[in-house]
Computed example of a mutant assay.
Amino acid sequence: MKPTALLMCFLLVLSCTSTDLVENWKNPDMDSYTANKILIVGMTQNTHARKQFEKLLKLEYASRGVEAVMSVELFDAAFTTKKKSVEELKTIENKLIRDGFDTILLTKVIGVEDKRIYREAFVDYHTSLKTFKEDYLKHQDIFYNPDYYYQYSVYHTVSSLYCICPTKDRELIRKGYIDITDPNSMREIVKDYVRLITVVLEEQQLINPKIEPTTKEDSNEIL
């Protein structure tokens, strides 16, 4: 699915950051979708990042008039300490439906890729390095200089939106793949990640536009 002008503009803004939308899919059978009560789940061993992510996304939904619940608020710490069976997950899903939930947003890290690049810019070696001596002198740092290469990690993540509505088929609504490159500030990465998700959801008519506060007090409550 090709992003439209609004999404393209936002991606250009994020191009200087380390959060990039790689692939985006929306269920073609759904023109639009509005959640009434959504459970936000961040699957990561980093508890602080999980809480930060779920809280910011909860605020985004709240500012759009949607009731959102963080998984860290709903489940105790023991929930993530052992694997769950199909029956256990079915029981959890049925309880969520009884409690009024109709949507789950599940975000997780699906892989980490370590990369290494040469720190210097590419040059035309056909003309610039004409002798063995020149070539060797220029690149001998390979043997002993740890700064010769720049090493970094790319975290591959996926964010999926599921309908668990009791009156219709429970199905995948949308899925987006996002890469996080060489994260330095977890706080800034989470903020960029949440902004990107909400812009894409709004673009795909899967979340309502933000409700502007009518008073200063309302504005402070949202912030």
Rank of each mutant, 00 (worst) to 15 (best):
K90N: 10
Q52P: 00
I110F: 08
K168M: 10
L106I: 09
V158Y: 05
E203Q: 15
V190W: 04
E217W: 05
C163H: 06
Y177T: 10
A77S: 10
T215E: 00
I178S: 10
Y148P: 01
R187V: 03
T81P: 02
K210E: 09
T127C: 06
A68I: 04
S219I: 06
F132Y: 12
I97T: 02
N184P: 08
S185D: 12
P3L: 03
F143I: 13
K2Q: 15
N208D: 05
T214V: 05
A5C: 04
A5Q: 08
E221V: 13
V194H: 07
K191H: 11
D124Q: 10
D124V: 07
P146R: 08
F75K: 14
E221P: 08
T131S: 10
E113W: 02
M1S: 13
L7F: 00
I104H: 04
F132S: 10
R119L: 05
T17L: 11
E171V: 10
Q45N: 11
K58E: 01
E60G: 08
F143N: 12
T131F: 00
K130A: 06
T4H: 14
Q140A: 13
M1R: 12
R64N: 04
F143S: 14
F79Y: 08
V199A: 08
E221K: 15
A35G: 08
